[in-house]
């Protein structure tokens, strides 16, 4: 049996940021930005729920919704997103709940994290491993990913809101965030 050398057909980036990036810390007085998309109403409902809790704690909350990412529309979207992340202190990026939308969620999260923002991507359980894999391929294996149950978007609002409620403390932990003012009062 002849043995010889063959050339490796694969390529992969060599660099990696394995740490999670900065903690969000106390959210009081900070501007928290939620990245939404056009596909997942469940993520709209949960982000609105979490946003209200952030506001109650003294944070300012803003939203940005992703749209088409190609052509002239894509370039407009890119400019908008850059302006968005320059305007916030903390990024919460979702929702990784399908193939391409996990791709874009992670990509946008990496952009925010690379800009130095405390950043957390939100994924549903079925796409958790996938989100970590493409975060690693994107050069940030340590990207924070908070995981919501799956299936999620198929559920009614009355069933989704309790899930958001139940995950609030967990997402704070993933973000490395605290609601300091509320904690002091308690």
């Amino acid at each position: 049996m002849a043995v010889g050398l063959v050339l490796d057909p694969t390529a992969r980036r060599e660099d990696d940021i394995a740490h999670a990036g900065p903690d969000a810390g106390s959210l009081v007085g900070k501007r928290v930005g939620f990245r939404l998309d056009r596909m997942w109403r469940a993520w709209d409902w949960i982000s609105e729920l979490w946003a209200e809790k952030f506001r109650e704690a003294g944070a300012e909350v803003v939203f940005w919704r992703s749209a088409g990412r190609t052509g002239d529309e894509g370039e407009r979207c890119e400019r908008e997103y850059q302006a968005f992340i320059e305007s916030i202190d903390v990024a919460v990026v979702g929702l990784a709940n399908c193939g391409s939308c996990t791709g874009w969620t992670v990509r946008d999260a990496i952009t925010a994290a690379n800009a130095g923002l405390p950043t957390t991507a939100i994924a549903t359980a079925n796409f958790e491993t996938f989100a970590h894999e493409i975060a690693a391929r994107g050069g940030r294996s340590g990207l924070r990913v908070h995981v919501l149950p799956y299936p999620l978007n198929e559920q009614l609002k009355q069933d989704v809101l309790p899930i958001g409620e139940a995950h609030f403390e967990g997402v704070l932990r993933t973000m490395g965030a605290s609601l300091a003012a509320r904690e002091k009062a308690a």
Binding site: V3, G4, L5, V6, L7, P9, T10
Partner: peptide
Amino acid sequence: RHEAELDIESFGRFAMAQGWGDGLPLVPPT
């Protein structure tokens, strides 16, 4: 460079183990 057996069957198994293949026979890229 990777050392591999160069007959089609052996290289196919090697390539699949490396995650390079699609399941069909591959020509060894020497």
